[in-house]
Design a protein around this nucleic acid. Structure first.
Lengths: 194, 194
DNA sequence: AGTTTCTATTGACATGACGTCAAGTAAAAC
DNA sequence: GTTTTACTTGACGTCATGTCAATAGAAACT
């Protein structure tokens, strides 16, 4: 029985996600989350000692209810390096909009809160492993450009697929999600594939 | 006589930049800036009504003392589109480390402070104009790939050259500034040039 | 049934940062 | 010699996080 199955905890996490996904995510305070969850502000602290801890739990909860593992399964079962690259971009690129609200909140705390910083860092390192696997698959297929080392190619793909880039291209440049995915795929190919 | 030539204002802005460039930039409070400038905390507010206003003034001050205009002059005087692209990446890419500390502070305020958000947005739009000019120069030379519209090519270059990407590649991936510049140039070429 | 434990409640309080206000001072400008 | 300007000190208001103490009800154990 995971810690997140406790009824009140689920209520808290759902409330937090709901508010972070609303029109004014920046104004999501502990008191708002408590009110939304239907409990007292102090009760939230009985379950999560700090705001950072709550937000971290919210991302894990979101992973859980969004079948993150399943999304990434498709890329792992690809037959060629190129296919793996495309599928990874599909999986991760389409997951970004889902985690974006809570990711933003967590990233905003990075400067002040080391727990939040390392939690977000862990997630990004996990994502980087997916990039490294795609690069390795390309390399095994002799499809990786010799222009960069495997390490550098991974760094580039990792950076290309960053949340910030998604934010800039879709929210600021008004690209549709579909355009984002297809163009990122083409940039990745042009950058990494011979 | 510009507003930044006032002796005390210069002291305040220099103090702010000094602290933001120190080992713990996140902990730069108004009181710290005042102490560093050698004046009382309240005196800072005589010159800058809010923290956001101070940070915005600090970026302009930094532009001023870093000869930003001169840096960008080189790219404008290029003869070919390719040359212009390379020189623009040199100019902006090497300016990022200079503005990074204050940029980080300003970006961190974006969520809560609309003045900070729009100030940073203005700067980024100005940078985007440089990208658009480079893309147009490529297009005029028939060197721009037909894969994207001019607008989309500008969006991509703009995103590629973002502060976040610089941060990720140099600070997280430990690329040297030199590697960053040369690899970004190669990605830009592979992405945008026929 | 009685006691302990768990969860939650209310209300008060500490902390830290931004920003404001009022009263006073010292030097420059008129 | 008076006014203006820039600054000082010290107190105060606000807002959000996080803490603490006293209380209450319900489930769980003996």
């Amino acid at each position: 029985m995971s810690i997140e199955t406790h009824e009140t905890r689920v209520k808290i996490l759902d409330a937090a996600l709901h508010l972070l996904q609303s029109d004014n995510p920046g104004a999501t305070r502990m008191a708002d989350i408590a009110r939304q969850a239907g409990i007292s502000r102090q009760a939230v602290y009985l379950h999560y000692k700090t705001r950072a801890e709550l937000l971290i739990a919210a991302t894990l909860h979101l992973d859980h209810i969004s079948n993150t593992e399943q999304r990434l399964e498709a890329s792992r079962s690809a037959n060629t390096g190129l296919e793996r690259l495309d599928r990874y971009i599909d999986a991760w690129g389409n997951y970004i909009p889902v985690i974006y609200p809570v990711a933003t909140a967590l990233m905003a705390m990075q400067k002040t809160d080391t727990a939040a910083a390392s939690a977000w860092n862990d997630r990004m390192q996990a994502m980087r492993h997916g990039c490294a696997a795609a690069v390795k698959a390309l390399s095994d297929d002799k499809q990786l450009t010799p222009h960069y080392t495997n390490r550098q190619a991974t760094d580039l793909l990792w950076t290309l697929l960053s949340v910030s880039n998604w934010e800039q291209l879709t929210l600021l440049c008004k690209w549709s999600q579909k355009t984002y995915i297809s163009h990122i795929k083409s940039v990745a190919r042009n950058t990494l594939v011979v």
